[in-house]
């Protein structure tokens, strides 16, 4: 469901029209800078991400709801940092040694991960998967020894087949539960019963996929994406540079 909820949605917003290369480069740059960002830069990045999601007609609330399990993970990060960082105790309790410094560092760490996820979501929501694939191929092309077209095809197939494999896994799980797999206590055995048939089905699917791609003339020389850079894209690149500068410069 996550893959479906966070997939590309066709629309005609400014963000949808931007060049995929700029969006991908922006995502990489913002992710790298966010890893070392301080709290003020993080707050700016968080609200910018929410604003851009709204601009791309992707409800920020819906995004946060869809990320609920990821938010649980972030809450675990916050809690762990709060309880394990030495500093001034928030409450005088030996069984809950939460510190002020721990809360700050926890929020910083969880916030960084949240901002990166929101920007990644923004890119996948507003960019056609085929454009992401072409952008990856474009960035990899100058690097010698990397088969850029194959790498881009692999990314495309991964995006396409994650929901298929998840569906197959859910079907297998139901079939096993229908035959009382829940009665088995050993989790390793349960995992084997699910994992082995899933692996076999995935290989069969991959084999059929290879035949189907061959039948449709898959090869190394196909029509490539035609990039059209407009003034709007250059402006976006300018705004992106300014945003990156602010992330570094904010005290």
């Amino acid at each position: 469901m996550v893959a479906i909820a966070f997939g590309f949605r066709h629309n005609d917003t400014l963000l949808h029209q931007l060049d995929a290369r700029i969006k991908l480069a922006g995502l990489v740059a913002v992710s790298i800078l966010t890893i070392n960002a301080n709290m003020s830069a993080l707050v700016l990045a968080f609200f910018t991400a929410l604003f851009l999601l709204a601009l791309g007609k992707c409800s920020p609330l819906r995004c946060l709801f869809g990320m609920k399990w990821y938010l649980v993970l972030l809450a675990c990060v916050l809690l762990t940092r709060t309880l394990t960082t030495p500093g001034d105790l928030l409450i005088e309790s030996s069984w809950f040694p939460a510190t002020r410094q721990g809360v700050f560092i926890g929020l910083l760490f969880a916030g960084r991960l949240l901002v990166i996820a929101l920007f990644a979501l923004l890119v996948t929501f507003t960019t056609r998967p085929s454009h992401i694939r072409s952008a990856v191929a474009w960035f990899l092309r100058p690097i010698p020894g990397i088969p850029h077209r194959q790498v881009a095809t692999m990314i495309g197939l991964l995006v396409r087949f994650i929901p298929v494999i998840l569906t197959q896994s859910a079907e297998l799980d139901l079939a096993l539960r229908a035959r009382s797999i829940d009665n088995r206590r050993n989790p390793l055995r349960r995992l084997t019963f699910l994992g082995m048939p899933l692996l076999r089905r995935t290989f069969v699917t991959a084999d059929r996929l290879a035949s189907a791609m061959e039948a449709r003339c898959y090869g190394l020389h196909g029509t490539t994406h035609q990039w059209q850079v407009t003034a709007r894209d250059w402006s976006a690149l300018g705004f992106l540079s300014l945003f990156c500068f602010l992330l570094v410069a904010l005290p």
Binding site: R128, G156, V164, R208, L209, A212, Y218
Partner: peptide, 20 residues
């Protein structure tokens, strides 16, 4: 397992793109 595109359009375009 025959559909390779991430959208309906992309899948239909897969063969013609391979034909260059």
């Amino acid at each position: 397992s025959q559909i390779v595109g991430e959208t309906v359009y992309d899948d239909a375009a897969f063969g013609p793109e391979n034909l260059n």
